[in-house]
């Protein structure tokens, strides 16, 4: 049975989503995003097993690669912002508006 895996994946996704919405620290928001991605990965792998083919597993690899790339750029941005602003709160970075 793969239902449990899917439920776990959904739970992880919701935790990540709520984290993104409510947390202010950029690092935590970032980790929550990763959590959502990994929840998706889990779902992909589960479906791959359920359907008996490898498509989902391959996509999971793609997601991991994208996530890795994203981490590199995202962390770099966060570090730069922290250096200039002495804060990692996402609410302090609101100049890009209107």
């Amino acid at each position: 049975m793969t239902t449990h895996y899917l439920v776990l994946s959904a739970l992880l996704f919701v935790i990540g989503g709520v984290g993104v919405l409510v947390r202010r620290n950029a690092i935590v928001v970032f980790m929550c995003v990763e959590l959502m991605l990994n929840a998706c990965n889990l779902a992909f792998v589960t479906f791959a097993r359920q359907n008996g083919n490898l498509d989902g597993q391959i996509i999971a690899f793609f997601v991991m690669i994208v996530a890795a790339a994203e981490v590199v750029i995202g962390l770099a941005i966060i570090v730069t912002i922290f250096r200039t602003r002495r804060s990692a709160s996402v609410d302090d970075v609101n100049l890009l508006k209107y």
Binding site: V20, D91, N94, Y98
Partner: peptide, 8 residues
């Protein structure tokens, strides 16, 4: 105006 600049 919807574009507030707040990521959240």
């Amino acid at each position: 105006r919807v574009q507030t600049g707040f990521v959240r």
